[in-house]
Structures are given as structure tokens and as C-alpha cells.
């Protein structure tokens, strides 16, 4: 039996996606679709994503790179006449796709998002230098050298303006209670996984 316009995927989204229970409330006005700053780069703007969910297009939604185009500008949220927390739903869908391993390979924003989290999860604070170097080397070593060279002027300027600390590479910022912090995040993740049915 075809899954077309059946509620199965909608139900999954409601259970597993942050604020997913709002998807059914979209009235398809399209205001959000016209609000994304990177609008032209979305294969499916939020309005469409919501309709696709309701039309049961699980595969298409979760493999799409659309959600990864969200800049978290909250334009849509303040404009949506139905007050959908669109930004969070985009984040939530991206998270679901990532957790299921369905998100597009080599999606840069996804990589950055993971790096960012791992960076902060380690020390409790973000190490901007490691983060940026990581970003430049995400595509492998050769490309990394190229990327870093391209942005070298920026980096040096930042160092000169005392806004990037080369010493961070060897430690730098971090919180004191790291063990408590790690335990806390582990617990939170555990609860979330149970609630959202991630093994």
C-alpha cells in the first residue's frame, strides 16, 4: 500500500523531531518560504518540507540538504501566522536525518555543526581556533591547506587584533567542572534517546 498522504511519517516526525507536533498546523501560506535568507539555495523551503511530511515523503525529506540551509535567523518564526517554531523544526529534522544517517554526505553545515558540538562538549566552551582549523581540514589535508591559505589574511588579521589566540591550540578556554559537565550531557542525551526512540 502506498504511503502517499498517509500519516505515518507525520507521526514519526511528531515523536522524534523537536517541536514536530507543530507540522500539522502549517496552513501552507508560504510566508516562511519567502523569508529564508538563503532562500534560493533551499531545494524545498520550510512550507514545502511541511507539506512533504504530510504527504508521507520520508526519504525525500530526510535526505534533503534543505534543512541544513537554515541560518537560524528566526525570520520565519516571527512571521508565521500560525506561530510554528519553524527554526527548531528545521533543526530537529536535520538532527533526525543525521541520527538516522540519512543526511547528505559531506554536507558542510552538518559537519560544522558536529564539530562545534564536539568542540564544546569536550571542554565546555568553544575553542574558536580548533573549530576553524577543523573546518578547513574537513575535506582532507590537501584541500585544508588550500582553504586555510585562502583565509590566511583573515586569520592573521584576527591574531593581530587580538581576537584569535594561537595558544588555544594547546588548551585555551574551558570550564573547570568538566566531569560534572560530561556526566550531565551524557544523561541528557540518554533521556533524549529514550524519548525519541534512538537506540
Amino acid at each position: 500500500m502506498s504511503e502517499n498522504y498517509r500519516n505515518n511519517f507525520l507521526k514519526e516526525v511528531e515523536e522524534r523531531v523537536e517541536e514536530g507536533h507543530w507540522v500539522k498546523m502549517c496552513m501552507q501560506c508560504g510566508v516562511c518560504a519567502g523569508s529564508c535568507p538563503l532562500g534560493p539555495h533551499w531545494a524545498h523551503p520550510p512550507q514545502e518540507i511541511f507539506m512533504m511530511i504530510r504527504a508521507g515523503k520520508r526519504e525525500e525529506v530526510l535526505t534533503s540538504d534543505s534543512m541544513w540551509m537554515c541560518t537560524s535567523c528566526y525570520n520565519c518564526v516571527v512571521r508565521c501566522p500560525r506561530k510554528l517554531p519553524i527554526t527548531h523544526i528545521m533543526h530537529g529534522l536535520a538532527n533526525l536525518a543525521y541520527r538516522l544517517g540519512l543526511s547528505p554526505k559531506n554536507q558542510t553545515t552538518q559537519k560544522f555543526a558536529s564539530m562545534f558540538w564536539n568542540n564544546l562538549a569536550q571542554t565546555g566552551r568553544v575553542n574558536e581556533l580548533k573549530l576553524s582549523l577543523g573546518m578547513y581540514f574537513k575535506d582532507g589535508f590537501a584541500q585544508g591547506i588550500k582553504n586555510a591559505m585562502a583565509m590566511q589574511s583573515v586569520g592573521l588579521g584576527m591574531v593581530k587584533a587580538k581576537r584569535l589566540n594561537p595558544m588555544e591550540l594547546f588548551g585555551g578556554h574551558g570550564i573547570k567542572d568538566k566531569s560534572g559537565f560530561h556526566a550531565m550531557l551524557k544523561k541528557a542525551r540518554e533521556i533524549e534517546d529514550r524519548r525519541k526512540n534512538f537506540a
Partner: peptide, 14 residues
């Protein structure tokens, strides 16, 4: 009423 229908899971498609 429309919202209530949506809350109950009625699917609306244009």
C-alpha cells in the same frame, strides 16, 4: 475550527 481539525490530524493539501 480549521485549526482544531489540524490538531486532530486531518491533512490539508492544496
Amino acid at each position: 475550527f480549521y485549526r482544531s481539525g489540524q490538531e486532530k490530524g486531518v491533512i490539508f493539501t492544496k
